[in-house]
């Protein structure tokens, strides 16, 4: 009986790992096999001349370039809104908030972190409906709105990583300031924040990755399939993840399908790159503390 249980557990554990690995391997293999042959300038710019396309003088059809620009702008705008807010809130929670306050705020931010991204999109959509009814009858979904909703999505991550980076500093380091008679403010800004800097940057990079890959939010807030380069903050736009979704559902030709494979590979590389750099930052950080 005991032997059987032992055997079953061990067998199940090996089975799980093998199943998981083969699923992951087939996913990556499939993507690489179909995606790699499509890589090339044509994937990004189609028939358009590269130089002119980059400068925006020529409209690029059936290619990645507008979606790349759209995603880049989207992530930058979202970061611009969420970074100051998230890092400031994280610093406040870690270093200044009274315990009770900290507890309540953390719970509230935790709830925000657990909210599905489609709800953020729906919120943005509701905002437009509201504006149409009240102040701006012409309000419509746009790059700015999408970036704002994405900012809401990544805000809790930024707050938590900032807070965690500060909280997890060694106790000895936290005592340097008070021991030397520095004010709390000096301690926070001259000792704790520089020391936590890498951890915070790691969190920022992860948040950027989240913003770049999310599809549900932008679907409801202004992304469309053939917008071309974004026309200003209040215009519609294209984005990499949405392009993948759209082509998967509505591809018309083999060429479009190939382009979809390429897009998926490009997005995977982009988020993979962001993820790896955040991971490496984290590792060097751990190493630095452990060496002390």
């Amino acid at each position: 009986m005991n032997r059987l249980v032992t055997l079953l557990i061990r067998g199940w554990s090996w089975f799980s790992v093998l199943l998981f690995c083969s699923a992951l391997a087939s996913l990556l293999w499939f993507l690489l096999r179909h995606g790699v042959p499509t890589l090339g300038l044509e994937l990004f710019f189609g028939d358009a001349p590269v130089g002119k396309a980059i400068l925006g003088q020529v409209r690029v059809w059936d290619a990645l370039w507008p979606a790349c620009v759209g995603t880049l702008l989207l992530v930058l705008l979202a970061a611009l809104m969420a970074l100051p807010l998230g890092i400031a809130a994280g610093i406040y929670l870690a270093c200044f908030a009274a315990p009770r306050f900290r507890q309540i705020m953390s719970l509230s931010v935790e709830l925000l972190a657990g909210t599905p991204s489609i709800i953020m999109g729906l919120f943005g959509f509701a905002l437009i409906l509201f504006l149409r009814k009240t102040f701006f009858p012409a309000a419509n979904t746009s790059l700015l709105l999408a970036a704002g909703c994405l900012a809401l999505l990544i805000l809790p991550y930024l707050i938590f990583t900032t807070r965690a980076a500060l909280d997890s500093l060694p106790a000895g380091l936290k005592m340097i300031g008070p021991g030397l008679g520095l004010s709390h403010l000096e301690t926070v800004f001259h000792i704790l924040l520089p020391a936590a800097g890498r951890g915070i940057i790691g969190g920022v990079i992860l948040a950027l990755g989240r913003a770049a890959e999310d599809t549900a939010v932008i679907m409801l807030t202004g992304v469309i399939a053939n917008a071309g380069l974004p026309h200003g903050l209040l215009g519609k736009f294209e984005a990499l993840p949405f392009r993948i979704y759209f082509l998967a559902a509505e591809y018309q030709s083999q060429a479009q399908l190939d382009s979809a494979y390429g897009t998926a590979l490009v997005l995977l590389c982009l988020t993979g790159l962001l993820y790896c750099s955040a991971f490496l930052l984290h590792k060097t950080l751990e190493w630095r503390w452990n060496r002390q």
Partner: peptide, 21 residues
């Protein structure tokens, strides 16, 4: 003030806590 007091009453801790700089 606490900070002025602490400057006159210096403290060194159990484990060396140098800044990682």
């Amino acid at each position: 003030s606490v900070t002025a007091l602490r400057r006159q009453v210096g403290m060194v801790f159990q484990t060396p806590n140098v800044l990682p700089t």
